[in-house]
Design a binder for these strands. Structure first.
Length: 869
DNA sequence: GCGGACTGCTTACCT
DNA sequence: ACAGGTAAGCAGTCCGCG
């Protein structure tokens, strides 16, 4: 494959492609599907499962010829196992073990143990089935003896042991599963080589492998979204999918092949409508629910991939259980349920809710574009299309209303996978490649699961023993620093005391991926921090200001893996994205790669301090943070010795008065030479307004763009009327070019705030304008220690019979009287406590007035005088 | 019995 | 179920006060 660019420009490859798209695809040669077949890549590996009846692992392959998922069953005789440190002779004495029904045989093996830095003779205990190792509530092999690698899911183990690359092209030849050749294009190879000049061979090898995975083009996959509606006799209650008590009255299916159907159940007492339903879809009525479901199951059978929004917990679960209670045979229902997931037999189910719920995805991949995780909110913010509004309960809708409502949900769902050139699917594939994880698992697990899988894969590839969690803790000891926040395990980052005032000409420098860089440069990992070597070389290699030391003899896997990913992002993909010659298709793919790497890198330090992480190692996290503090403090000290004025800093960034660009250059040089860390100019502000508060500033670029960080005026819960006033003020501030102009607009800003104050006093704002909106993060009854205001408001709503769940957004206003607050829906405008609101305005604008030397009290005091005259 | 000082809880944010 | 650090508001408690 030489021309990656052309592959990426390939349009949807479908058999039932619409006429319009067909024309487009013909004009758009070469065809990726054709190319892939010519290159013997007939399919893509999307995941691995285990078939309990056959007792075999199987690969799920997306076959391009048929656009179906094809299963390939293991032919290598791979079996579930765990590992013991006892020799076979000893284990043979263990009656419970050798007589266990799932026990198969022992094998003598050798493993490298990173904790002790030694080769170890160990015994592989091979079992007949995965559940015998672990998974049953009692009597598993891992409960009988102390075992290693015993709680890795079998399918995951299979991926690692067979070194399978999920999301990459494969083919089945003579019954064997073999990877299709995909080599890095020469041009990419040459570019990459340049960035890797000074690295160790081991590091280079890893980097090339990553690049091969990241550069392989991602084709389009045929898929369909589904959404169901269920009848409910009680309007406020959502039917329980485990009971599946009530009939499914509507199902929408939308395929990427332009298949669009809405299936409706005929019911009594639903008025016939004279006009036909106006939807760009086939509407099909069914007399019985059984007919409807049969038809539906046939429809989705065509699709290799089904996407839903919350299908794990609702749609698929309901469908399966409902079909069962309608006496469908098990084989007739193409849905399989797990404890907390649902999937399609011979298919892939992607639950977008699960993926969007993931905080890393929300924050780093989508930049907080959506705040709540509802289909309406996500659809509105990413597609500009929200759910269809309905004013009646589902069960009372007419056929037409019901069809339109249900269809819209399916439409948003499928479009979420299609927008921005199928960005979402590409992101999932990318994460599957980095983590060597089944694509369904990628969407369901968090970033710690991905990183765990990536590290496990590398362990197995190198025949390293994967340590037990208790082992790491026992050998590596605890943390030695004290956190500033009560209840935290160790000390974190430094935040520099800001210099209050309005500063013109500010450069912000930061370390590119500071923590991943530290992990790379300092060779951090559970095997290297506090390594077992007795000699001085290691023990003297202290983490600054700390008793921990770092190994000088061995390379940590974490350091190599995280380091190589970091370098690829910083030295390769980020510069490529800045290249004006990059084509649109490549740019969009590189954006995905860069964002995917960002997600993984941003979490790569935190996982070592998370006690549920499989390779939890507090000293690694603590050392990383400590080195981070050392680095930024050293840099600040150096800057001051160079005479550069430091205004503020946080973790990995420093704000400088940028009078002397030459000096900043010197600082960057110094950082590279003395600490091997890349310090770079991140932002240049026309001016920055700093109050005395940390994590709280306003920065204006020369083009007028404004960064607002931490200011309450921007926060989600702030009432609309204050937000609007706040942004009116920001608009004014964005125009300011100099100190002199600044003085001039002060009056205008005062007027803006004064206007707001007067409108409030005259009760000209609506309840919606005045509403605070705060997420209730726990179920209301679980607030036992205190009753915060939003919980009080929630309680008032519950008294009215409204159901409040955790995660709901509570909107309330401050009122005079006992409770102090009332939900918007229950309050009236004349009970508003305007005094409280004045205090609130004061506090919000003080964050900006403080550096500007404006006095709020004086401002409203003046107002009173004016009114007087 | 009351108000100010204090601590702790909660949410939303920053890196 | 990636981490720790900070701001802010409010709830609840303690303490002094002839």
């Amino acid at each position: 494959m030489q021309n990656l660019d052309e592959f990426l420009s390939e349009p949807v490859n479908n058999q039932k492609i619409s006429e319009k798209r067909k024309a487009k695809s013909e004009s758009n040669e070469p065809n990726l599907k054709k190319e892939i077949i010519e290159n013997n890549a007939k399919s893509f590996l999307l995941g691995v499962g285990y078939d309990g009846d056959k007792g075999l692992a199987y690969a799920k392959l997306y076959d391009f010829k048929s656009d179906k998922i094809v299963l390939w069953f293991d032919d290598t005789g791979h079996k579930p196992y765990c590992i013991s440190d006892q020799p076979i002779e000893v284990l043979e004495e263990n009656k419970d073990l050798v007589s266990h029904s799932g026990f198969d045989h022992f094998e003598e093996i050798e493993k490298y143990d990173p904790i002790t830095d030694s080769q170890k003779k160990m015994t592989k205990i091979v079992a007949r089935d995965p559940l015998s190792i672990g998974g049953r509530p009692i009597g598993c092999i891992r409960d009988i003896i102390k075992a290693w690698e015993a709680d890795i899911r079998y399918a995951e183990n299979y991926i690692h042991d067979r070194n399978l690359e999920i999301g990459m092209p494969y083919e089945v030849k003579d019954g064997k599963l073999i990877p299709s050749k995909f080599e890095l294009p020469d041009s990419i190879l040459a570019d990459l080589e340049k960035t890797l000049e000074d690295e160790l061979d081991e590091f280079k090898k890893l980097s090339y492998n990553w690049a091969r995975l990241l550069e392989c083009p991602v084709p389009e996959f045929m898929r369909a979204s589904i959404d169901i509606e269920v009848y409910s006799p009680i309007e406020t209650r959502i039917p329980d999918p485990n009971e599946a008590e009530y009939p499914i009255i509507c199902i929408s299916i939308i395929g990427t092949d332009d298949f669009r159907q809405v299936l409706l159940l005929k019911r009594e007492n639903i008025p016939e409508e004279s006009e036909s339903i106006s939807l760009d879809a086939d509407i099909i009525f069914f007399q019985t629910e059984k007919e409807l479901l049969s038809y539906f199951f046939k429809c989705i059978g065509k699709y290799p991939i089904i996407v839903t929004f919350n299908g794990d917990d609702f749609d698929l679960r309901y469908l399966r259980n409902r079909a069962q209670s309608l006496d469908f045979e098990k084989e007739q229902i193409p849905i399989e349920l797990g404890r907390d997931y649902a999937t399609i037999r011979k298919g892939i189910h992607l639950d977008l809710y699960r993926f969007f719920f993931n905080r890393s995805i929300q924050v780093y991949a989508f930049g907080q574009k959506y705040r709540e995780k509802s289909l309406n909110e996500i659809g509105s913010s990413l597609l500009n299309v929200g759910k269809k509004e309905i004013t009646k309960p589902i069960s009372e809708l007419t056929y037409s209303e019901l069809a339109i409502y249900c269809y819209r949900d399916a439409e948003i769902t499928i479009n979420l996978t299609k927008f921005d050139d199928s960005l979402l699917i590409k992101l999932m594939i990318l994460l599957a490649r980095i983590s060597y994880m089944d694509i369904e698992d990628v969407t369901r697990q968090g970033v710690s699961g991905w990183i765990r899988s990536m590290l496990f894969h590398e362990h197995k590839k190198r025949n390293y023993l994967i340590p037990r969690q208790d082992e790491i803790l026992e050998f590596k000891g605890r943390t030695v620093s004290e956190a500033i926040i009560k209840g935290k395990k160790y000390k974190g980052a430094i935040v520099v005391e800001p210099t209050p005032g309005v500063h013109f000409g500010v450069s912000v420098l930061d370390f590119a991926s500071l923590y991943p860089s530290v992990i790379k440069i300092w060779n951090l990992g559970y095997g290297t921090v506090n390594c077992p070597h007795e000699d001085e070389e290691c023990k003297n290699n202290k983490v600054p200001n700390m008793s921990h030391w770092v190994c000088k003899k061995r390379k940590a896997l974490e350091s190599l893996l995280i380091g190589s990913l970091r370098d690829l992002r910083v030295n390769f993909y980020k510069p490529k994205l800045k290249d004006p010659n990059l084509s649109d298709n490549m740019r969009s793919w590189y954006r995905v790669v860069s964002d995917g790497l960002k997600v993984v890198l941003n979490a790569s330090y935190g996982v070592f301090g998370a006690d549920r992480f499989a390779l939890y190692c507090p000293p690694v996290a603590e050392a990383t943070a400590a080195i981070g503090r050392y680095v930024i403090q050293n840099t600040i000290d150096k800057a001051q010795s160079l005479g550069i004025h430091v205004l503020y800093g946080d973790t990995d960034s420093i704000f400088f008065e940028s009078s002397d660009q030459m000096q900043l250059k010197n600082l960057i040089e110094w950082s590279k030479n003395s600490m091997k860390l890349e310090l770079e100019v991140d932002k240049e502000y026309k001016y920055v307004a700093l109050s005395s508060r940390k994590k709280n500033y306003l920065g204006v670029y020369s083009d007028g763009k404004v960064d607002i960080k931490g200011l309450t005026g921007k926060k989600r819960h702030t009432p609309k009327f204050i937000k609007n006033t706040f942004y009116e003020m920001i608009d004014k501030l964005s125009e300011v070019e100099s100190k002199e102009e600044f003085e001039k607009i002060k009056g205008e800003i005062k007027n803006i705030v004064k206007k707001c104050y007067l409108k409030l006093k005259n009760r000209e704002y609506s309840l919606e304008d005045l509403a605070f909106s705060i997420v209730i993060s726990k179920s209301p009854e679980r607030y036992t220690k205190t009753t915060p205001q939003h919980v009080k408001a929630a309680q008032l709503l519950m008294e009215k019979g409204i159901d409040i769940k955790r995660g709901d957004l509570i909107t309330f206003v401050k009122v005079v009287g006992e409770t102090g607050v009332k939900p918007v829906s229950l309050a009236s405008i004349n009970e508003i406590d305007s005094q409280k609101y004045v205090e609130y305005i004061d506090s919000i604008f003080d964050q900006v007035f403080d550096p500007m030397d404006i006095d709020f009290q004086e401002l409203i005091g003046a107002t009173k005088l004016e009114k007087f005259f």
